[in-house]
Design a protein around this nucleic acid. Structure first.
Lengths: 148, 148
DNA sequence: CAAAATGTAATTGTGTCAATTACATACTAT
DNA sequence: ATAGTATGTAATTGACACAATTACATTTTG
């Protein structure tokens, strides 16, 4: 039960904004770095902005910026901002209601699936965009802010 | 992404086998309970059998059975037996290698994604098919073994 | 040997995602 | 003001995974 690629690309976007010097970045620059199209980037930025993580500046010299310090943006927020689907998909068509197993299996599994999901989310809540950005800087042997 | 319903249905299958009296269950009976088709069930049983969780008996009076006591089957094993895709999908096309962020983002995110995945898997490893089966029996107000 | 059941290949329909095209909208800079 | 720039978003297309279905070979029971 995979996530879409949106989460990875959204983290990429936010990290790029975080390592920069705060000047707005255009969607085509982000698209180049993430190797996708500017429209896909703008679609993600739209969700991130709805979630209060970024804001955008129209017009010449415009682009997108973090709406908050990178240290205050948890990966969990990014995940929730861009992922639509439930982590665990259940039966495509509901199981037989009158069956001993079919009628109760969903309720029986639910607590376990909840715990598994929460456990994953707790890990994503421990890490911030600032953490990822400084790791990227370490691996790439550069210091922030990076002027593009 | 269209996420797979295989995990939920596989747990359903194994739970149905667990609450039964040990006699082989046919794929069409399982399909009826899970509200899907016998071919889908047999496809899942094929994976579960490869993983050593079930075995099947051909011919008249045949069907599928647990290959091990339900108490010895962890949900994690079921998950790994039937799910193909990585939990976190990365960029569809790899990010720009020469970019400061693109060249390092995957490696930078990897430890966090690993921890999140392991954390989810740990939760699934804590629960067995026997746990689910007895919860189903409790909710359905019947006692095991259930003769179909 | 006939019937029953699994095992699996091939086809089809559905849905999601991402790439693309196109255009409206809003803002900046001169 | 206005020309240019950038975002925002709708619509279309292609690719792909999943599951439902059809069909049939294989194996085993009775």
């Amino acid at each position: 039960m995979p996530t879409s690629t949106r989460f990875a690309v959204a983290v990429h976007i936010l990290t790029a904004l975080a390592v920069g010097d705060g000047k707005p970045m255009r969607s085509d620059a982000l698209a180049y770095s993430a190797n996708t199209s500017p429209v896909v980037i703008r679609g993600l930025l739209s969700r991130l902005s709805d979630a209060g993580l970024t804001r955008s500046q129209l017009g010449a010299g415009g682009g997108s910026m973090l709406a908050r310090p990178a240290k205050k943006i948890k990966l969990l927020e990014v995940y929730q901002a861009v992922e639509d689907t439930e982590l665990f998909s259940l039966h495509r068509t509901p199981p037989c209601e009158n069956c001993a197993v079919g009628g109760n299996i969903l309720e029986a599994m639910n607590p376990t699936l909840m715990r598994a999901r929460e456990s994953l989310e707790n890990e994503l809540a421990k890490v911030t965009i600032a953490d990822i950005a400084s790791e990227v800087a370490r691996l790439g042997k550069f210091t922030m802010p990076l002027v593009w």
